[in-house]
């Protein structure tokens, strides 16, 4: 709405907006651009920054030290993310549908399922480190109780299973978010729509996929992009459970841990600001691609579908 005091300079607009714009620009936008900029520079031996074009990126993807790390982290991050997208969203959809249909106990189920999500990565990481620790033997005795004791392995310590285990723990922790978002849009679907379907003779299963699911697609999109951004930006859980070296043998190394190691250095590896910024820039490009795909492809598609 347009205010009538047009002639006077609307100073109050500046007062309202300045704090937000200034803090956001200085603390978020400027450092982001500065980091991207740093990826195009390198530091000489006398501590001078010189423009280096794309050479940091070339180093990252061809150097015998960096190449295995970045490719490994990319691969692990894709696996980490796929496990979330598939397993987490499938279970979350099932739980949301069940919770939404249960009248009296609905609040109770919802509250409990969301619980792990409010705890910090540090707590979750240590809790699972303890539970999976062969020294304590808790998981082994649980498996033995159902006669599956032979399945037990120190999953977190083996290169073949460590990444999957950490991913599943992260799935467990964040199940609450997709569940609650899907639940919220499920209970927002008007009853009349479902009644009409029941009159037409559709059973629960059919009416769910034919009527409710298409209406859920915008939420599914939101859930997927949130998961994607969160996963390609993840760090805390792996750092807590496996340290900055993301062992064993970098088996759980994802872009976040690689970024941290490259920037700050770890053990034999010296910290390198410009290479760290380059890893961050790669993460930025991946996330930006995902976001743009979501905004220009998914949102549009889904909107057309709704019409």
């Amino acid at each position: 709405m347009v205010t009538k005091q047009r002639k006077k300079f609307p100073f109050y607009i500046v007062v309202f907006l300045a704090p937000a714009v200034i803090i956001y620009t200085i603390i978020m936008i400027y450092p982001l651009l500065a980091s991207l900029g740093l990826s195009f520079f390198s530091r000489t031996s006398d501590n001078q920054y010189v423009f280096a074009g794309f050479s940091n990126y070339v180093t990252l993807f061809t150097d015998s030290f960096y190449m295995p790390r970045i490719l490994g982290a990319l691969k692990n991050n894709v696996i980490f993310s796929l496990i979330h997208l598939v397993i987490q969203n499938a279970i979350a959809l099932l739980l949301a549908a069940l919770v939404a249909s249960k009248g009296r106990l609905r609040n109770f189920y919802r509250t409990v399922i969301f619980m792990p999500t409010v705890l910090s990565f540090v707590i979750i990481g240590f809790v699972w480190n303890l539970i999976l620790n062969p020294l304590w033997g808790v998981s082994e005795s649980i498996l033995q109780a159902v006669n599956l004791g032979y399945l037990f392995k120190p999953w977190l310590g083996l290169p073949d299973t460590a990444l999957i285990t950490v991913s599943l723990i992260s799935v467990w922790q964040f199940m609450g978010i997709p569940m609650i978002l899907l639940y919220a849009s499920l209970i927002g679907i008007p009853e009349e729509l479902m009644e009409a379907a029941n009159v037409d003779g559709a059973n629960g299963w059919q009416s769910f996929w034919k009527i409710k699911f298409p209406l859920l697609l915008p939420t599914v999109g939101v859930v997927m992009i949130l998961t994607f951004v969160g996963n390609f930006n993840a760090f805390d859980l792996i750092y807590t459970m496996k340290g900055a070296n993301a062992g064993p043998e970098f088996a759980t190394d994802i872009l976040g841990t690689l970024f941290y190691r490259t920037f700050f250095g770890q053990q034999l590896q010296l910290g390198n600001i410009n290479m760290g910024a380059t890893v961050a820039a790669v993460m930025f490009l991946i996330i930006l691609t995902g976001v743009l795909f979501y905004v220009f492809f998914w949102q549009r598609r889904v909107q057309n579908y709704e019409m």
Binding site: I27, P31, L33, N233, G276, A277
Partner: peptide, 15 residues
Amino acid sequence: IMIPIRLGTVGILQL
């Protein structure tokens, strides 16, 4: 909303 602030960590620390 969509770009995580973590990606600017190098710049934030310098600042």
